[in-house]
Computed example of a mutant assay.
Amino acid sequence: MTRIAIFSDTHSTVGHELEGEALTAAREADVVIHAGDFTSAAALEAFREECDRLFAVHGNADSGAVRDRLPEARVLEEAGVRFAVTHRREGGEVGLSMFGRSRGADVVVSGHTHHPTVVDVEDCLLLNPGSHAQPRGHRPGFAVLEAVADGTGLEGEIREPDGTLVESFDVAGTV
């Protein structure tokens, strides 16, 4: 069964800042997605050390060393679901939806706001896991998705680093 962990907005100069259930999720996931703003190469490398497969993009606060190593956007497919990943897009939900639509995505993963949110728009799901390290007035967050037993999509949750449930959601796969 596929397990995907999703993070964003680490904003660290020393490491990944993962703890509790967030650290467990990163270590146990088949795939980890990070929507940017590691800030430092040390934070990026710390994530890579914890994860078997890391798919990340750079954010607006990332150092030149991080920007040189990561794309601004990327697309990946896991468990029959197509993910489009970016740090942010101008135009809010409309801009993110257009970004996802142009890439045939079922889920658009973004960061930047530090606000954990799930918004179901007409043709895709917009997912911002929040920031597990610097919530900036919001609940700290990260997301975990697991394949549904019948292979029809994913069941997801946004959680706080201590494991407290913030929100549950489902993703139908189309790939």
Rank of each mutant, 00 (worst) to 15 (best):
residue 173 G to L: 10
residue 141 G to R: 08
residue 88 R to I: 07
residue 138 H to Y: 14
residue 74 R to C: 12
residue 60 N to W: 06
residue 95 G to P: 01
residue 135 P to C: 06
residue 34 H to G: 01
residue 160 E to Y: 08
residue 70 L to P: 00
residue 131 S to K: 03
residue 174 T to H: 15
residue 46 A to V: 04
residue 152 T to H: 15
residue 19 E to M: 07
residue 103 R to I: 05
residue 63 S to R: 09
residue 82 R to Y: 13
residue 93 E to D: 15
residue 71 P to D: 07
residue 40 S to A: 13
residue 28 E to M: 11
residue 65 A to C: 06
residue 54 L to A: 04
residue 84 A to E: 05
residue 26 A to S: 05
residue 107 V to N: 07
residue 2 T to P: 06
residue 12 S to N: 00
residue 129 P to L: 05
residue 46 A to E: 03
residue 42 A to Q: 09
residue 100 G to R: 08
residue 45 E to I: 05
residue 98 M to K: 12
residue 166 V to D: 11
residue 134 Q to C: 10
residue 146 E to K: 08
residue 71 P to L: 01
residue 153 G to H: 06
residue 158 I to G: 01
residue 113 T to D: 14
residue 81 V to K: 04
residue 129 P to H: 05
residue 140 P to R: 04
residue 156 G to F: 01
residue 161 P to F: 05
residue 65 A to I: 04
residue 47 F to C: 02
residue 147 A to F: 00
residue 18 L to K: 04
residue 164 T to W: 14
residue 140 P to H: 06
residue 153 G to L: 05
residue 98 M to F: 12
residue 149 A to N: 13
residue 21 E to I: 04
residue 12 S to D: 06
residue 15 G to E: 04
residue 101 R to E: 15
residue 64 G to K: 13
residue 15 G to S: 08
residue 74 R to G: 09
residue 2 T to E: 09
residue 43 A to Y: 00
residue 156 G to S: 10
residue 143 A to G: 02
residue 163 G to C: 04
residue 50 E to A: 07
residue 63 S to K: 07
residue 81 V to D: 05
residue 9 D to A: 02
residue 19 E to I: 09
